Computed example of a mutant assay.
Amino acid sequence: MMVTYSSLRSHQAMIFIPLPFVVALLLLILFVVVLRRDEEVEPNRPFLVLILLTALQSVLSGLRWGYGVQTIGVIMPVIAAMVPPLAYAGVSRLVRTSRRPLPLRIALHAVPTALILSLMALWRDAIDIALVLIFVGYALAILLLMRPGADALRLAPFEGVVPAYRAIIFAAAALCLSAAVDTFVFLDFTWAHGEHALTLISVSNLAALVVLGIAAAAASRSRAPAEMVEVGPRLETSEDKQTIATIDALMETRQLYRDANLNLDRLARKAGIPARQISAAINRAMDKNVSQYVNDYRIGEACRLLAATQKPVTEVMFEVGFQTKSNFNREFRRVTDMTPLAWRQRKG
């Protein structure tokens, strides 16, 4: 989260542990959790670096505003400028594989940091405005990537697409929130000599906690008839019907939905159909995204296993392609409007 850097005037130090330190601790815990969760697969490195960078930024904010350590104000704008490019790079890894070579991508995303370094040497008063523009610009760029909805996350496994999509939207909102807070602090220094700066920064860190909480809640939430899953009415378009027939065949004959790592990109390769064509056909004909379509098959098979066998719910969950209880329960409720245990008891 950004803070205003052009004014380095001293303020009364907080007499308690600054809230930014609490935020940093929570971010470090989050980093450990994500690292352990992704230890069996290739991690999304931009997101991991982003978590560490925001933790460092929060610590520096606590030192600067909680204990009046003025010297660190020199490096804080540089760190702040790295946050939005990392967020965008992490989202890009779920959306598509960029055709640009890696050195060129790194160079492009290094431009904001280079700009801030140049302004620190040539025009310090413009740093705050530049940071606001960087944060808002990258937030808009992320939202532009997310225009197709959850289907934009072509490289994310279907199981977690909906929570990932929501978390990305919250991340873009957090960038805008940071820009708004920095603007308010800048105006406070300009018009009120920083009288409300400490309060604004404390509230902004509290808001960051709220945003993190909402993002976590979104990962555990995501409705349709209670019997076996059926697809909705299909649009009378020959190309859509042919596309869906091909995907249906893959699901029914090869049970492709059992692949826990299945994503839109992999589904498109197996079907020999462009990902955008699959997404458009399912969206038009069924009024749902591809992850919901695939998870409908998974839940349909889970319903059959729960009713016809005595397998534990966890075993059923893994067998049909889910890897986490939260995602399995969320999708099961979406499709059947009840929990897996309630479904089994009703059928039993």
Rank of each mutant, 00 (worst) to 15 (best):
M2S: 07
V3L: 11
H11E: 09
Q12P: 06
Q12I: 02
I15C: 08
I15E: 15
I17E: 10
P18H: 00
A24E: 06
L26F: 12
L28W: 15
V32C: 09
N44H: 10
A55G: 11
Q57L: 03
Q57H: 04
G68K: 05
V74N: 05
M82E: 05
P85F: 02
P85T: 02
G90D: 11
R99Y: 14
R100K: 12
P101I: 07
R105N: 04
A107I: 02
I116Q: 03
M120Q: 08
L122M: 06
L133K: 02
F135R: 01
F135I: 00
G137W: 06
Y138R: 00
R147K: 03
L155W: 15
A156F: 12
F158G: 05
G160Q: 06
V161I: 03
V162W: 01
F170A: 10
A173T: 13
L177Y: 03
V185Q: 02
D188V: 01
W191K: 08
L198W: 05
A208I: 13
V210C: 10
V210A: 13
L212N: 02
L212I: 01
A215I: 01
A219Y: 04
P225M: 07
A226Q: 11
E227K: 13
V231I: 12
E236P: 01
T237M: 11
T237H: 13
E239S: 10
Q242P: 08
T243F: 08
A245V: 07
M251I: 00
M251N: 01
E252P: 11
N261A: 06
N261W: 07
L262A: 05
N263C: 00
R269P: 12
P274I: 01
R276W: 15
Q277L: 14
I282C: 05
A285S: 04
M286P: 09
D287Q: 10
K288L: 14
N289F: 13
N289R: 08
Y297L: 11
E301Y: 01
L305F: 06
Q310V: 00
P312Q: 04
E315S: 09
F318S: 04
E319I: 07
G321L: 08
G321C: 13
F322G: 08
S326Q: 15
N327G: 14
D337A: 09
M338Q: 08
R344Y: 11
K347A: 13
